[in-house]
Amino acid sequence: MDLFWQILVSGGMLGSLYALVGLGFVLIYRSTRVVNFSQGEMLMLGAILALYFYQDLKLPYGLAFVGSCVTVGLLGAFLERVAFRPLQRAPVITLILATVAVGQMIRSAVRIVRGSEVSHFPPLFPTTPFTVGGVTLTALTVGTVILSIFLVGALVLFIRYTRIGRGMEAAAQNRDAATLSGVSINQTFLLTWAVSSALAAAAGILIAPLIVITPDMGIIGLKGFIGAILGGFLTIPGAIAGCFLLGIIENLAGYYISGAMKDVVSFGLLLLILIACPQGLFGRQEARRA
């Protein structure tokens, strides 16, 4: 039984990180109807930049964290401006492929700059395990969960209570009506790409000490997408719940089936969900206009 709780807790921790990157997918999808295949690369870039700031430039952790998020956020905004905005009226397929191309460029550029070397992010919090009610935890995992939940919460509050956040939400729900209310769609989209790229970077930095940093680590970002699909892609709470669920399912699968098959299970789950109930477990059908 303790083992079950153990799996549940570490799954939840994974889930909180998935939620962070998953929300980035959801934000972009809701306003531009595009799934951003470069989201995983933003995550990878976030981790690598933070490592560079922290280890090579010897910046304090907090500064490295914020600096990396801001840099990646700016890159997201830049890409929106030069690559995605010109394609705003293009078919969805074209836009999806554009994000694929951008992802590939980032990935290979990183490989050119620093090779395929594997690096480790030094843990910020101690990794000495302690036990609470039969469940083994480390300060690192607890700290990571708290930070990512804090970031998810901050984003939700930002959208809910700030004027700019409301504008983003309005533009996502009804582009014309938002424009007529005075929301600039172009600015909103720019901001959306920036925010979701920064979120991915944050997720990358937080997840980095738990895994290794490679140019291909972006694949883990797609787990955020799967989690969001699992919960229901169109609502923010549904997506968050789905990401937590995915983290738990993966950990269960990793333990009871095999570690290597973890990813197979999550993509298998994606196929299953898409076939059986594409609106997600906690989501609802996209409103259709007659």
Partner: peptide, 21 residues
């Protein structure tokens, strides 16, 4: 706009506030 163009997933109050953006 035509066809009762509201923000469907916002409350009535939030819809009105959006008008004062």
């Amino acid at each position: 706009p035509e066809r009762r163009d509201v923000f469907p997933d916002m409350t009535v109050a939030d819809n009105l506030t959006m008008g004062a953006y």
